[in-house]
Design a protein around this nucleic acid. Structure first.
Lengths: 252, 252
DNA sequence: CCTTGTGAATGCGTTCACAGCA
DNA sequence: TGCTGTGAACGCATTCACAAGG
C-alpha cells in the first residue's frame, strides 16, 4: 500500500474515543504477529478474532482513524501496523524511568516488552542507598536524590511508580514537579495529580478481588462444594434491595 | 471487561453493575485505612475523595448493595468494611496458584497485599525443573507436571499466569481443565477460555501505549498539531516486522 | 460477490438534582 | 438541618444492519 493515492481521511477529528485508544495496542499486537508471519492482508473478522473482540467494534474503531481498509478485501497488515503505531505515538522513542526497584520494579526493568516498542528504560531509581550503582537488567540503579536531574537530562515524560504505597504520592509529586506528565502506578494507592497529568494504575489486589466477586457468585449458583464459607450468599433475583440475608453484624 | 461470554438468562446475579464491582475494592481500601485510624463514620463526600471518585457515583454504587448509610450522618466504617468484604467474597479464603516464577511471578509471590485480604498463595508453579524445590517468598516452587494435582488438592479456583506469552494459553488450558474458573493473566496474549471462566488481564505494555497516545497528543498541542504524517510511507518491510521486535515477551 | 464503513438503535454508566429520612 | 438514596437526564460505548464500493 502506501501508494501515491493519499486518500487522507480528512475526517481527522482528533476525537478518538478512550475505549478505542485502549484497544489499539491489542490490534497492534495481533497485527504485528500477522506481519511476522508475512500475512499481507486481514479481514476485520479475522483480526477481531485474533484480538479477542467483536468485528463490528473493530471496524468502528478503525473508522475513527480513517479509511484504511479495502472493501471486499480487508486491511493491509503492514500499512495498518504503521498507522496504528503512529497514532499511538510509537514511532518515536519514549524514555521511561522506573522508581522503586524492589521485586516488582526489577521485574518491570527486565520486562522485554518494555524496550520492544518505542519505550526505553532511561533510568532506575530507588531510595535505598545500598542499591545505588547496583545494576538491574543491565542498568545501574540511581538514588532518589538525583530524581529531578535524571528526569531533566533524559527528557523523561513517562514515569513508572513501583514503590511501596506509602512512598508513592511523594514520588509522584516529585516526578510531576520535574516534568513528568504520564504516570503508570503500581502502588496500591490513589494518586492525586494536577490537571494535565495522566495516571493509569495497575493493581493486583483489585483485580483479584474482582475475580473473587465473580467466583463467589459462581459458587453460589450450585450447591457450594466448599461449605466452609460463612453465609454463602444465596441468589436474589428479586429486583433490587437485596440484603437481609445476613445478620446485622456490627463488627466492633 | 473480563467476564468472557457470560450470556446467561437475566434470572441470576443480583444486578450489581460491573463498573461498580470494579470500584468496590477501591472503597474497601479507603475504608480499611479509615478503620485503622479508628474513624467511626464517614460521609459519601469524604469517602469519595479518599477513593478518588465522585460522591454521587459512590452513593449510587452503594445503593446497589443496599441501604447501609444513615441519612444526615454518613456510613459506619466498620459495618461498611464488612458488607463490602462479604459482597466481594473476601470473608472466605481463596487459595491461589501462581504459574511462571520468573521476575514477575516472584514479585507477585512476595507481594504483601496478596495474603492480606482473603487471598493465600497456595502454590508456585514453574516449568523449569531447576527451580523445583527452590523457595520463593518462603514457598517452594513446584514443577508444572504436578499442576493438576496441586489445583485439586488445594481446591484452587483462581490462577495467576505470569509465564511468557508463548506458554500462557497452554497453561491456561491446563488450569481450566483442572478446575480453575478465574484467571488473572499477566502474559501479553489473548487467552481463550470456555464459558463460565473469567479472565482478567494486566498488561504493562498496553498501559504504556495508552499513556504514550495521550503524551503524544499533549506534545502536539503546542508544537505542530498532527500536520500531515501519513504521507510518509512506511518502509516496505515485506517479510519482517518494522522493528523486528518480539511481541513483548514476559520476563523469564 | 465480497468486506468495509457508518447511521441508527440499543445498552451501560455517570451525573444531576431533589425527595426522603435520621 | 444535614446527608443519603434514587428517578431521570445525559453521554459514551457497543451492536445492529445495511448502503457503499472495491
Amino acid at each position: 500500500m502506501a501508494t501515491g493515492r493519499t486518500h487522507r481521511p480528512a475526517t481527522r477529528s482528533r476525537g478518538i474515543p478512550e475505549a478505542t485508544v485502549a484497544r489499539l495496542p491489542l490490534y497492534l499486537r495481533a497485527l504485528t504477529a500477522l506481519s511476522e508471519r508475512s500475512v499481507p492482508t486481514v479481514s476485520s473478522e479475522e483480526l477481531a478474532a485474533a484480538a479477542g473482540v467483536n468485528s463490528a467494534k473493530l471496524r468502528k474503531d478503525f473508522s475513527y482513524l480513517g479509511s484504511y481498509g479495502t472493501r471486499g478485501v480487508g486491511y493491509d497488515v503492514e500499512y495498518l501496523v504503521y498507522q496504528i503505531s503512529r497514532e499511538l505515538g510509537l514511532t518515536q522513542d519514549w524514555p521511561v524511568v522506573i522508581v522503586g526497584i524492589g521485586n516488582l520494579g526489577a521485574a518491570l526493568a527486565n520486562y522485554g516488552g518494555f524496550a520492544s516498542r518505542g519505550f526505553r528504560v532511561a533510568a532506575l531509581i530507588d531510595a535505598d542507598p545500598s542499591m545505588a550503582g547496583k545494576p538491574v537488567a543491565g542498568i545501574p540503579v540511581q538514588h532518589t536524590d538525583d530524581l529531578e536531574k535524571i528526569i531533566d537530562e533524559n527528557g523523561v515524560s513517562i514515569g513508572v511508580i513501583a514503590t511501596p504505597a506509602g512512598a508513592a504520592q511523594q514520588v509522584c509529586d516529585r516526578l510531576v514537579a520535574a516534568g513528568v506528565t504520564s504516570i503508570l502506578n503500581f502502588a496500591p494507592t490513589v494518586l492525586s495529580v494536577p490537571d494535565g497529568v495522566d495516571v493509569r494504575k495497575v493493581d493486583l489486589s483489585i483485580e483479584l478481588q474482582i475475580l473473587a466477586f465473580h467466583e463467589q457468585r459462581k459458587a453460589g449458583e450450585e450447591a457450594s462444594p466448599d461449605g466452609s464459607g460463612p453465609a454463602a450468599a444465596p441468589k436474589d433475583t428479586s429486583g433490587q434491595g437485596p440484603d437481609g440475608d445476613v445478620p446485622a453484624v456490627m463488627p466492633a
